[in-house]
Design a protein around this nucleic acid. Sequence first.
DNA 1: GCCAACGTTGGC
DNA 2: GCCAACGTTGGC
Length: 155
Amino acid sequence: MNYWLMKSEPDDFSIDDLQMCEQQTVAWQGIRNYQARNYIRDQIALGDLVLFYHSSCKVPAIVGLANISSQPQIDVSAFDDRSAYFDMKSDATAPRWWQVHIQFMAKFSNPVSLKQLKADPLLQDMVLVAKGTRLSVQPVTQEQYQHIMKLTNVD
DNA sequence: GCCAACGTTGGC
DNA sequence: GCCAACGTTGGC
């Protein structure tokens, strides 16, 4: 079992949107970064847990929990020239981009803000904190995950 | 809206 | 294969 953090802009797709999806599940399409693609294609597995992060918003924060609910699949939105995610360099014979489905598990009553993450001595090695990285799919260690889950329960 | 950090592209 | 130019992300 592995742990991940996935970013989404809430104006675009929020944790509430995920909760309201049919089966509370959505295909995570549109990853167009090779490092993130490699994680999705090669390392993410059914049942892995996902910290759902809101970026580019008033209070960037980890706002909920999801799980990986499919095997990695080819992201067919790359083939669709009407899609915002269209990539003419990806086609069915040489698919370049991959997706998984994620399923809603929880919305935190105490989101963990980026500010909190940055200030926490135990979380300095988080990819999100350490590199200020823009990577939209990133690994989280079990220790980091457990600590963050503790923070969500603190009032 | 600004801009730093980072990723990608393409000329050589 | 280097690296400058350019584009994007995302916090502030």
